[in-house]
Design a protein around this nucleic acid. Structure first.
Length: 875
RNA sequence: GGACCCGUAGCUCAGUUGGUUAGAGCGCUACAUUGACAUUGUAGAGGUCAGAAGUUCAACUCUUCUCGGGUCUACCA
């Protein structure tokens, strides 16, 4: 084995060997099925740190489960990311000099460009996923926009249409002028900005004033809403006023609506049904009340005023129109106030512009309608799946870690509105609806006969992502995989796509399969830089995972990501962490290298352990305890907790103590062999490459660590005797500490005397260890001993240790040290005694707790006495 | 407006049903260093657990409030 571990020498060839072994494919594994679907990265770019984290998480889980003897499927894939990808390609084309790619290239031409880009991006990102060491089954690679996934999309659309859940509706949508497409409510990013709040009258003879931030939309007002209980305006309800507003004739009906807050603004609200979702709702309500109001569309899809806005405004942009309205109001003396306020507006997550509300015909998914034969709505299904379990079956419940996200999800489900499915972009699944005059047919194939034209629009990209847990398995055509691997076992995702994705997977899976999509959902936070800023292209703080891998190795990257996360919380990432991880990877390599040098014939079996000394019992006991703790933590998705325990054991117990002792006691082949096997196995999910390479160095290329069995906790190895060993450790540390404090040269060997009480045998058995590790010439062990002159001492668990400094004792300094210790002990004794003297504590606290405190007090008192003795002996 | 998260050593963070003299990594200080590892070893300094009140025999842990930092969400035009 080389002196230092160099990741670049091994990683690619190890990954190749894994792939060739076939064990990434569950068809080559036995056991209970276990499945994880990879959240498909968008084909818009390259792998970033977020992907690196996700791959690390999924792969830890997959490798752990595989070693548990399960038939593990980690299914990889990519997402065509409709809007995001088209937006990116259009932007690139514009940068290259094209003015309007959609016009210049046409539908097929632009699609070809996007496809080219997507394929290239896909290839890159898949290669990068492999660099992360992800043990995914590449034979089942999926893409949201490939043929099989397309079939699933059309199938579901048709089913929902036939069930009456998908409908064509004329409603106000979120419209991105820049992207020339709709966006669903979930695709909006809300930003705060300053806006002007105008208070004005429509005309001189209109009886009251209203307030707005958008004067230009007032050209499309058809009503004024007031609160029905508002005394000021009650009398006007039902009246219609004809006004001339900025040269446009408006018919305004006064309506009562309890949504209007009498306290806000003037308590009267101009209703613009065409350009406000709220106002549109009023418009619909009035229709139901049989007291309809009009709808005037004054803003077009190009973001400019329509002819209905009047000759003065037509063709002007929204902002130009706004200024003009304000100007005219001022000129007529109708503007009463102008005030600056904070406003919250929705912007398109992909195009960045503030969305315009515009009424349009679109395809919608009804979340409230009863599903035929189910007797409940999609909303009901989504709610059940995270509460009582689907159809009241608790085994069909999605458990979310951490639990608090369940509440967020349920709040959202309660407030869910119909989902706008259609998009006016070209990159995506074309809506499978065909028109011929008034006739409509739904299906993937063009209906028989001439004259059928397919809908021009495409589906929201999340429609196909929602199917991911089962479309990836070949649904509806391939039943076997669906039966074997669905519902999937574990899903991880960032909290930012809880609504966009988790919710829709639950919807699609419960509706189509009558099953939950996954049993456990693990929600992780975001990675931030050292200063807590988000990583983003614009702030230039990006770190390329590939560069990190090149420099530090994949294992170091994985460990630096996993070692510091807790479920649901953001975590910071910076290169010092990777550096620390790299040090550990090398340490593990060298630990193995050392152990290998003392084992003549390494074996994977668990023969006789040949336990001889206290140290042997101690390390095996620790290993067993830690194995169990690590296993439990992984089962609870506490990955960093598990890793920390393992790191502690490996470095601080195995390397720092046991290996040093092995050099002294010698001949520990069996125990070391056993421990090394277990440690490598447990590290494998976190650091697959270095562990696999070490395994190869030991056992050759025949057997792979990847499919070894996860270590069992050997409870028979857990022994009480490790307390005795802890004492030995503390004595050694104590002597070292005295040496350091008194500036004894490290090479100088000292003499020491232990007053061991009832533990003479313990010390005699381990005398050699103490002598070597504490650098002693002679070690004398007595039942009871008096402090020799010229020595200084300390007390540890009732045992007194005297170190002979042969006259080099600085008495003054020693006094200070002992006085300080005495003071601390005094304080501690006082506290304990007070507690135990408290009758309420003694009677209320559990007996075990009281007993523990009592025991502590006895020990501390004993220690105090001994320290006082040492203090008195100082002259 | 509503909700959630965070505030623990200089920095980054653990601390899982309330009971340890509050932990880790990095950083810092001192010392060491030719055989597993300078990607190292040994020893050490460093915290009134944001603040206040309450519940309890017992609070970093539970409750309420306050002050900071962050996130999500809503039809306040």
């Amino acid at each position: 084995m080389d002196k230092a571990y160099e990741p670049n020498l091994y990683e690619d060839q190890i990954y190749k060997r894994w792939e060739e072994s076939g064990f990434f494919n569950p068809d080559n594994l036995e056991g209970e099925p276990y499945s994880i679907m990879m959240p498909p990265p968008n084909v818009t770019g390259v792998l970033h740190l977020g992907h690196a984290l996700e791959n690390s998480l999924m792969d830890v889980m997959a490798r752990y489960q595989r070693m548990q003897g399960k038939k593990v499927l980690l299914l990889p894939g990519t997402d065509h990311a409709a809007v995001a990808t088209q937006a990116r390609v259009e932007k690139n084309l514009i940068k290259e000099g094209m003015k309007n790619p959609r016009e210049e290239l046409g539908r097929d031409g632009l699609l070809e460009k996007i496809r080219e880009y997507a394929e290239q991006s896909k290839a890159t990102i898949l290669k990068q996923i492999k660099k992360m060491g992800t043990s995914a089954d590449w034979s089942r690679l999926a893409y949201t926009f490939d043929e099989e996934r397309g079939k699933a999309v059309n199938e579901v659309f048709k089913k929902m249409y036939d069930d009456g859940l998908i409908y064509r509706g004329f409603r106000v949508v979120n419209w991105s002028v820049k992207g020339q497409s709709t966006a669903s409510d979930d695709e909006l990013i809300y930003i705060d900005r300053k806006a002007k709040f105008y208070t004005f009258k429509y005309s001189k003879d209109f009886p009251f004033t209203i307030a707005t931030t958008r004067p230009e939309t007032k050209l499309g007002d058809t009503a004024v809403a007031v609160n029905p209980d508002d005394k000021r305006y009650q009398k006007y309800i039902g009246q219609v006023f004809d006004v001339s507003f900025c040269g446009v004739d408006l018919k305004l009906k006064i309506i009562g609506d309890e949504h209007v807050d009498p306290e806000f603004g003037t308590g009267a609200l101009g209703v613009t049904p065409a350009h406000s979702p709220v106002d549109f709702e009023m418009y619909e309500k009035q229709k139901v009340k049989n007291d309809p109001i009009g709808l005037i569309k004054v803003i077009g899809i190009d973001g400019k005023m329509t002819s209905e806005a009047g000759v003065d405004f037509v063709g002007k942009t929204v902002l130009e129109a706004r200024d003009l309205v304000v100007e005219k109001l001022k000129a007529q003396g109708l503007l009463e106030a102008e005030e600056e306020i904070e406003q919250n507006v929705g912007t398109s997550d992909r195009f960045g512009d503030v969305v315009e509300s515009i009424p349009m015909d679109q395809w919608w998914l009804d979340v409230n309608k009863e599903i035929p034969s189910r007797g409940k709505s999609l909303r009901d299904l989504m709610r059940e799946a995270l509460t009582a379990g689907l159809d009241g079956d608790i085994t069909k419940k999605v458990n979310v870690t951490p639990e608090r996200f369940t509440k967020l999800y349920l709040d959202r489900v309660d407030n869910l509105r119909d989902w706008c499915l259609s998009r006016q972009i070209w990159w995506g699944h074309r809506i499978p609806v065909w028109y011929k005059g008034e006739e409509i047919q739904v299906g993937a194939e063009k209906p028989d006969g001439d004259g059928w034209v397919q809908d021009e629009d495409t589906l929201d990209t999340w429609f196909s992502s929602g199917l991911w847990t089962f479309s990836t398995l070949g649904w509806p055509e391939q039943e076997l995989d669906v039966k074997t691997f669905h519902p999937t076992n574990w899903m991880q995702m960032g909290y930012e796509i809880l609504y966009l994705w988790l919710m829709r997977m639950v919807l699609m899976s419960t509706y189509n399969l009558g099953e939950i999509p996954f049993k456990d959902a693990y929600i992780h936070g975001m990675l931030r830089d050292k200063d807590g800023q988000k990583f983003s292209k614009s702030s230039g703080n990006g770190i390329d995972p590939l560069e990190v891998i090149e420099k530090y190795g994949t294992d170091a990257l994985r460990w630096s990501l996993l070692g510091s996360i807790t479920p649901g919380n953001d975590s910071r990432f910076y290169l010092e962490k990777v550096e620390g991880a790299q040090h550990f990877v090398n340490k593990l390599w060298n630990i193995s290298r050392f152990i290998m040098s003392v084992i003549p014939n390494p074996s994977q079996g668990e023969g006789s352990l040949n336990i001889k000394t206290l140290a042997d019992k101690w390390i095996l006991s620790r290993l067993s305890v830690v194995t169990e703790q690590i296993t439990t933590n992984i089962e609870k998705f506490q990955f960093s907790q598990a890793g920390e325990l393992l790191r502690d054991f490996t470095w601080n117990e195995l390397a720092d103590w046991y290996l040093e002792i092995a050099k002294i006691e010698g001949d520990k082949t069996e125990v070391l062999n056993f421990i090394l096997n277990a440690v490598l196995k447990m590290w494998h999910p976190f650091m697959p490459f270095v562990t696999e390479q070490i395994w190869t160095e030991i056992y050759g290329t025949e057997k792979m660590l990847m499919v070894e069995k996860w270590p069992k906790c050997h409870s028979e190895l857990v022994s009480e005797s490790f307390e005795g060993f802890e004492l030995i450790k503390n004595i050694i540390t104590g002597i070292r500490s005295l040496r350091a404090e008194n500036k004894i040269e490290p090479v100088k060997k000292l003499n020491a005397l232990i007053s061991a009480g009832g533990m003479v045998d313990l010390f005699q058995e381990n005398a050699e260890i103490i002598k070597v590790l504490a650098r002693l010439e002679n070690l004398q062990i007595e039942k009871t001993a008096v402090k020799p002159e010229g020595s200084i001492g300390f007390v540890e668990s009732g045992v007194e240790v005297f170190v002979d400094l042969s006259g080099a004792v600085d008495i003054a300094k020693e006094k200070v040290r002992l006085e300080k210790e005495k003071q601390e002990l005094d304080k501690y004794v006082k506290g304990l005694a007070g507690k135990l003297g408290n009758q309420e504590f003694v009677s209320n606290a559990p007996p075990a707790v009281v007993e523990k405190e009592q025991q502590k007090l006895t020990e501390v008192k004993d220690k105090l006495t001994k320290i006082e003795g040492q203090l008195n002996s100082l002259k």
